[in-house]
Structure formats: C-alpha cells, structure tokens
Amino acid sequence: MSLVIDGLRKRFASVQALDGISFTVQPGEVYGFLGANGAGKTTTMRIVLSLMRADEGTVTWMGRPAHDWPRKTWGYMPEERGLYAKMPVLEQLVHFAALYGVPRPAAAAEAAEWLERFRIGDKAGARLETLSKGNQQKVQYIATILHGPDVLLMDEPFVGLDPVNVAMLKAAFLEMRDRGKTLLFSTHQLDQAEELCDSVAIIDRGRLVTAGPTREVRRSTGHQVVRVATASGNRAWLRAMTGVEILRDGADFAEIRVAAGLSPQRILEAAMANGPVLRFEVADPSLEQVFVERVGALADDERTLATAGARA
C-alpha cells in the first residue's frame, strides 16, 4: 500500500531517458528524488502523473494503477513556473482548484488563507508577473495543494529561492506530511534532501543508482566520515595514515573518509598522540558524498556532468 514505481522504461528517439526505474514511496513520507539534470527525474514524474506513457513498467498507488485514481489525488508542481503570467493570483488559484472540482468560494477562501500565511496576502489581486520569483513559487505551491491531493509531486521546488523562502516552503512541506500527505520531490540540492527526506532515490542517466531510507543510503557505501581538529593544527600525522582520504582540509577541522575495515578509533588514537584533540566526530557520509561516489563510478565525462549538477 504505497506508491510503487516498477521497471519504468521510456525512450525518446535516440535517447533512453528511463532504463528500468523502480522504487517505492511509503504513504506519509517525504521522498527525495535525486539526480543531475537530464537524469530522468521529470520524465519519471510525468509518467507517475499519467501525463506521459511509459514504454514499459507500471505505477501503482495503494495497489491500483496510478491513472485509475481521480485526478484530484495528485498535485503537481512543475520545475518552471506553470502559471498564467497575466492573470491575477487569486483568480488563477481558484481556476486551478475548480479544474479539480473544488467549489469556487471554498477555493477562494482557502487560497486567501495560504497567501496570508506566505505573507503575500496583499498580492491576491495582482497579476502574477508582477510578483518576485520567490513569491511566484509560493503561488505555484498553493496551486499544487489547494485541491487537497494525497500525493504531491514537485519538480525542483527549491530552485531559485532565497533562504527565507526555502525555510517557509520547507515548513509547508512538513505540514503536509503531518497531514498525512505523501510528498515526492526532485532536487539536485542534496543538503535539502538530507534535511527533509525520510527516503531518497538516486538516479543517473535513466538508471536507478540506489534507493531507500536516507540513513541506509548514507551508509550504503560502507565508509564512515570522521571530523577531527587538534590544538596544533598540524596534520602531517593524518596524511601519514593509510586507509584515510582527506575530503576537507579546513583551517577549523579536517573531514576524512575512512576506508571500510578501518576503525575510526585508530584515527582518534593517532590524533591524541599528536597533542590535545579539540573535536572528534564519527558520521555517515553526506548524501552528496554518496552521490559523488556512486555516480562517479561512471565514465569521466558523465561524472563531470553528474557532479556539476549535484553541486549547482
């Protein structure tokens, strides 16, 4: 009883856009869909929404084919602005809700409430194009949820937002999760995914790299990460060790990828032998490190593209 994406394949002319994508989103969880530009995120979402047909594979929600569910089950927020530039904000929110069968007065009341909450209540009568990009994105989000969908699919919702708006949108996401909605969003900003997502899937060039609960995905490499700082600041002892790779050689602390089989305790011991230790921390690799490592297994040119996208 969940959103099951099973064996999706889709070919556009000479490009195999999806090559066997499978993952499962549990009801009520926030799911991150990670990949570089062109990895197949948008295509997967369009197939889940029945906007596009897969060559092979199925999508089911609660055991029934996704396209059999009423349209109001789904909320979709496309990557680029999917709104009428010249239409007043409130009027178009009501229009979109009406397309899902929400009565106009009810839609207008709830839309006004959301606009207030996002601190753009005074823009209700303004034409969309007069709003800033961040405010337009908020309107887009309201358009996505106004009809009360059970499953929200959002394509790169945080692109181009300033930190204040990112925080506002994150809070709204978590509120939807608390209301029992299922959220799937794509991103190449992996720190956002790490913070918000219960589970993630990483795809690359139409193929699934890994998928599962965020913690398990972070542990999936078998490596651990150690952050260490000593009073002397001298790291010659660290560079002399085998089985470690310095990921970050900062003035404040060093971040080290520890090879599988090497105990982090050995690093602590070596650090203490070189004087007082100010900081010592053992952690799982970040999603970004996992991503670079897993996707980096590809050919050089593809890695360049994937990591560039991941860091953008």
């Binding site: 906007l51 999917g82 709104l83 009428y84 397309l99």
Partner: peptide, 15 residues
C-alpha cells in the same frame, strides 16, 4: 502561450 509557460503541465494534471 500555455505551452511556452509550462502552465500546460499543471492544467493537464487536472484535465
């Protein structure tokens, strides 16, 4: 116009 502004995708999710 709808297609160039991608509003089409939002509408097609409903209709």
């Amino acid at each position: 116009e709808e297609k160039s502004s991608r509003v089409m995708e939002v509408v097609l999710n409903a209709a």
